[in-house]
């Protein structure tokens, strides 16, 4: 899937070391990765291998200690100031004092959208994540899955070209997860957004991605990059096909190699 299209994220030789009280933690080392426009890239790897950290570096929430990174040809900071991406956190992080509609309006207010435009976008995005009718509810009146959907609607509301998602469906049950995966895929196919997606689930990664990046820990680095040759238009049935299983198998091999149970 690489080739002619413009690259959105370029990472070269990137490393990040946290200075903690009991010595340095090498969270990322020697990361080389280039993500093209319209790609759907999944990051997968054992817990603590640096997936979240990599995503935070792209979002300028963390500064790398070595190497270079560019987002849309700019530094991550410039990209953030240009509001180039939407970020979905591991937890929903909705504000308990705002209704669902007001939560989705939050980035729109900050970015100075007019009132009419705001209402239109709230309506559209709540529909997109199947939450119509819950506008006036507060977050704590919703289930965990609904909250996470609201946070996705919030990230989509200002229509960024780049979506950074950190285990957005991690806390949901299998059925809801399948459903949201399908919806996300549809949305991606329709809008041609670029997505960087962190997950722990092999089927989810294979089902969604055009490319799967397997990370391994201590220090966090890229173990394998798997291009998917599955068609862009997919349904859940594809998970039974041999092609799907072949890719899933390769991802599993990579994960297993990354895990070291010797220590």
């Amino acid at each position: 899937m690489t080739g002619p299209e413009r690259s959105v994220i370029d990472i070269e030789n990137l490393s990040l070391t946290f200075e903690t009280n009991d010595g340095p933690v090498h969270a990322l080392s020697d990361i080389d990765l280039s993500i093209g426009e319209g790609d759907f890239v999944s990051l997968i790897g054992p817990s603590g291998c640096g997936k979240t950290t990599l995503l935070r570096v792209i979002a300028d929430l963390e500064a790398p200690t070595g190497g270079t990174i560019s987002v849309n040809g700019m530094s991550p900071e410039e990209a953030r100031l240009k509001r180039a991406y939407g970020y979905v956190f591991q937890a929903a992080a909705l504000y308990p004092w705002r209704t669902i509609a007001d939560n989705i309006a939050l980035p729109l207010e900050i970015m100075g959208f007019a009132k009419g435009e705001r209402e239109e976008r709230i309506r559209r995005n709540m529909e997109l994540v199947n939450l119509s009718g819950f506008e006036r509810k507060y977050p704590w009146q919703l289930s965990g899955g609904m909250q996470q959907r609201a946070s996705i609607a919030r990230a989509l509301s200002f229509d960024p070209d780049l979506l950074l998602m950190d285990e957005p469906f991690g806390a949901l049950d299998e059925i809801v997860r399948d459903h949201l995966n399908e919806q996300l895929l549809k949305l991606w196919a329709k809008t041609r957004k670029t997505v960087v997606f962190v997950t722990h689930s092999i089927p989810e990664a294979v089902f969604l991605s055009t490319r799967i990046v397997v990370l391994c820990p201590r220090p966090g680095r890229i173990y394998d990059v798997i291009e998917s040759d599955l068609p862009r238009e997919r349904t859940l049935d594809i998970r039974e096909t041999p092609e799907f299983l072949k890719i899933a198998h390769r991802v599993r091999e990579g994960l297993r190699a990354g895990h070291s149970y010797d220590d």
Binding site: R83, Y95, I110
Partner: peptide, 23 residues
């Protein structure tokens, strides 16, 4: 995580104050 959210919107300190810190 909520402060990070404000940062991803590149909200100004005043916006973060009004919309997040004060409430």
């Amino acid at each position: 995580i909520q402060m990070d959210l404000m940062k991803t919107y590149s909200a100004s300190p005043a916006q973060a104050l009004w919309k997040l810190r004060l409430p």
